[in-house]
């Protein structure tokens, strides 16, 4: 009954500026790609409805800017995230090396209840560039890093060609869902008039 209801999943995309976060999101949500680079300053939000095992979900995707500036959103930005996507550009080593920082940053800011098992997904983007000849981060290297961080799922993508984007986000949604905590019973207090009266009367006898 309660599990039949539609759920909203908050997904955060992190990574250095220019790795293709906004492009991946646009490719996934709108099936569009633009070569024009327009830096995201701050945050951008897209939503997408997905169906999974006969249930409807809404993905609320929070795109961020890689610049330090975006940190102005602070904790509020990360709060209540259901999944975190870490993106690097396979043609830029620096962007891969930054992944650790982004992961740390997320865990500190979002402070999820179970950091060990918080769902991350790593995307190695822009595999189309130069037919793969300018590539500096090998699949092996990326997978090794993912394995060392608790078997984070890894996808090689091209936002430009739409390669593997759908599959990656499907995995993101699944992982976000897995992380859903047990439904807690909602039980607020009931006013206990008798007790309140007692307390009052004992307090007033002075």
């Amino acid at each position: 009954m309660a599990s039949r209801r539609r759920m909203l999943l908050k997904v955060i995309i992190l990574g250095d500026s220019g790795v293709g976060k906004t492009s991946l999101m646009n490719q996934y949500v709108n099936r569009k790609f633009s070569n024009q680079y327009k830096a995201t300053i701050g945050a951008d939000f897209l939503t997408k409805e997905i169906q999974f095992e006969d249930r409807l979900f809404t993905l609320q995707i929070w795109d961020t800017a890689g610049q330090e500036r975006f940190q102005s959103l602070g904790v509020a930005f990360y709060r209540g995230a259901d999944c975190c996507v870490l993106v690097h550009d396979v043609n830029v080593m620096k962007s891969f090396e930054s992944l650790s920082n982004w992961r740390e940053e997320f865990l500190i800011q979002a402070s999820p209840s179970d950091p060990e098992n918080f769902p991350f997904v790593v995307l190695g983007n822009k595999i189309d560039v130069d037919g793969g000849n300018s590539r500096v981060v090998s699949e092996k290297k990326a997978k090794a890093w993912c394995a060392s961080k608790g078997n984070i799922p890894y996808f090689e993508t091209s936002a430009k060609e739409g390669f593997n984007v759908e599959a990656a986000f499907e995995c993101i949604a699944k992982n976000a869902l897995k992380n859903e905590p047990e439904e807690e019973m909602y039980i607020p207090d009931t006013i206990d008039v008798a007790r309140e009266r007692q307390q009052k009367s004992s307090g007033c006898e002075c």
Partner: peptide
């Protein structure tokens, strides 16, 4: 005033904010 935060890009997409 702040120029730090911007809600960007999503304007042409049907699902955007």
């Amino acid at each position: 005033n702040s120029s730090k935060v911007e809600v960007d890009g999503a304007t042409s997409s049907p699902c955007s904010s």
